[in-house]
Design a protein around this nucleic acid. Structure first.
Lengths: 145, 145
DNA sequence: ATAAAGTCTATAGATTTGGTAGACTATTAT
DNA sequence: ATAATAGTCTACCAAATCTATAGACTTTAT
């Protein structure tokens, strides 16, 4: 399960993507509309800014806005940013690689082999899931009602 | 990431599967050979027994052994047993379903739509990953060395 | 100046994780 | 019978992580 932090981040990003081009949006508005605790959201947005996904403007008329394109920002990156690795085992991650202590031989580990395949497929799907894609899906679901 | 508990459980099960038909194996042997803290392993095996996957025999000559077939026991079931749902969101799980508090409309949620697809594919792969399959993969990897 | 809005630091309760200790019960060999 | 073996049950605990909250501080537009 993803953490609330990640869930909040995704919701905030989708919210901002829907308002793209409308200038900065203040934290409070995102918090209210998306039902996210204000102070908690602050630190989340700050992280997204540090990651180069969002930018902010201070003072009156300020707020947050997307720095990257909605079709560049994807769930794999956002999830990794807040929850760390997506894989089920440290030994099948790329950026967070770590050997399993209990493991006898990584090269021939059947468990690792399975989890590598799972991770590969998962990341593939999550990489495709950009903000644009999420909004596209939402519109499709609405049209089907 | 899966918990150590789940990882230990999987390793213990694969160990037992490799020794199938050789009678009960004592906890201490599994703990030593698989580098799992003895006392921790006890509770894990007990859970697997309660779940109907393992059975045990007490007293001298006792120990644990597989109750189900190695090709029936799969990673999806084991992971669910110890770590709960496999999905990234509570709203796309079957047995652990829960509505997302922040969510406005589940029916048209694009995020949910993505995570449903991810979960579906993941569970599909993990269901196929039985103990037999894991051992088969291990043998294949060894043969390739 | 002043109000608006993001930034930074610190703290804290709740839950989960990973593990330990020890008494108790059932089984088997002698 | 009884001693040794081996699983079972209950309780506990330290550390880490998660989910926040509080408040002081900085920057900017008007």
């Amino acid at each position: 399960m993803i953490s609330k932090k990640t869930k909040y981040a995704i919701n905030a990003l989708v919210f901002l993507a829907k308002r793209e081009g409308q200038g900065p949006i203040v934290i409070s508005e995102i918090a209210e509309k998306e039902h996210i605790p204000r102070k908690f959201l602050e630190s989340i947005l700050l992280n997204l800014k540090k990651a180069g996904i969002l930018a902010s403007k201070k003072g009156k008329g300020g707020g947050y806005y997307l720095l990257q394109n909605p079709d560049e920002i994807n769930l794999a990156d956002v999830m990794r940013l807040f929850d760390g690795p997506i894989a089920f085992l440290p030994c099948v991650t790329y950026k967070y690689y770590e050997r399993c202590e209990e493991c006898k031989d990584e090269e021939t580990c059947g468990i690792r082999d399975v989890f590598f395949e799972v991770k590969k497929k998962t990341v593939e799907l999550l990489k495709k899931a950009s903000l644009s894609e999420i909004i596209k899906r939402e519109n499709r679901l609405i049209s089907l009602l």
